[in-house]
């Protein structure tokens, strides 16, 4: 037996997030699809963060001399109907898009996970009532619900967060409830009780960390839908309004000029596609990783280490 000692400097907290992070790292290291997705995302996030500093032009400064010009050396993605630099505006839109989507996903996770965990751990009628409410929300068409909510609250980043996250809360609740129910029967959870762990401690230290993996997949797949939701709402004029820049809004503004300046729609469209692709590739790889049937390699590995 090889007794190589992997001594690590400090003990990592075995939190649910650490667990998710470990899985993410494993998948990105071993799966090509995940590698492409993750690289794409890392690149886009960096661009979003340093965007304001690398944007070649002021996003709001009109220049009537160069209205609706195609890609040139100084405006590599061309200009819009009042001569603003499209490239700079797309970078700015990326920041906004990520911000809205991240906010919406975080809110959905922060609300959905505790609800599901509570329902699953509690069981009985509490579980039934909570889960029926979740079913009711899932039964409503999500995009329509978001439109109605934004229309009621009025367009703002906060309203978008709320409207977009509302429909996905039940998905997290359901997922984590299923995980909790499965984990609750595991012997190490029984063992936790046997050494005297309190119920709360059992839930947070034993049950949740082992139930978090599917949530991570849901998160990566939730991002594309949040991004498109924001884009469609803004496209309809229900989302973000100028001066905030949004890709949906840019696509909407490009409509009258489609024949003379197609790049006004093509570049924001491509940007949107790239961002969504990043998440979908990563999310797919994570899902494969979690589903052993689609992944013979992991099973074989397990067999000979057992």
């Amino acid at each position: 037996m090889s007794e190589t000692v992997a001594v690590r400097a400090s003990e990592q907290p075995p939190s649910a997030f650490a667990a998710a992070w470990h899985m993410l790292r494993d998948v990105v290291v071993s799966d090509r699809k995940a590698k492409i997705g993750a690289s794409l995302l890392v690149f886009l996030v960096i661009v979003a963060i340093i965007g304001p500093y690398i944007a070649p032009h002021d996003v709001e400064l009109p220049n009537t001399d160069i209205r609706l010009t195609g890609p040139t050396l100084s405006n590599i993605m061309g200009t819009d109907h009042i001569g603003r630099d499209l490239f700079s505006r797309i970078i700015s839109g990326l920041t906004i898009s990520l911000m809205v989507a991240t906010g919406a996903v975080v809110i959905a996770v922060v609300i959905g996970v505790p609800i599901g965990a509570f329902a699953g751990y509690q069981g009985g009628w509490v579980d039934s009532v909570i889960m029926r409410i979740m079913d009711a929300i899932i039964a409503m068409p999500g995009r329509l619900l978001a439109i109605a909510l934004v229309a009621a609250i009025g367009p703002s980043v906060g309203a978008l967060w709320f409207a977009i996250s509302f429909g996905s809360v039940p998905r997290y609740a359901r997922l984590i409830r299923g995980g909790v129910l499965a984990q609750r029967e595991r012997e190490y959870v029984e063992a936790a009780r046997a050494i005297g762990e309190s119920p709360g401690s059992t839930l947070f230290r034993y049950v949740l960390p082992n139930a978090m993996a599917p949530v991570l997949v849901q998160i990566t797949l939730n991002f594309p839908s949040a991004i498109t939701a924001e884009a469609s709402l803004s496209f309809l004029g229900l989302g973000l309004v100028p001066p905030t820049i949004s890709w949906g809004q840019m696509l909407s503004a490009a409509q009258p000029y489609l024949e003379v300046a197609p790049w006004l729609a093509i570049f924001p469209g491509l940007a949107l596609t790239a961002l969504i692709m990043g998440f979908v590739l990563l999310g797919d790889a994570l899902r494969d990783h979690l589903d052993p049937r689609s992944h013979g390699r992991r099973r074989a590995k397990k067999k000979d280490s057992a």
């Binding site: 003990e11 990592q12 075995p14 650490a18 667990a19 595991r186 012997e187 190490y188 029984e190 063992a191 936790a192 046997a194 230290r205 034993y206 960390p209 082992n210």
Partner: peptide, 15 residues
């Protein structure tokens, strides 16, 4: 308590 199956009685995420 000492359980039967040492593969399922230890929390896989704890050092």
């Amino acid at each position: 308590f000492v359980f039967q199956d040492p593969f399922s009685s230890l929390n896989p995420r704890m050092r």
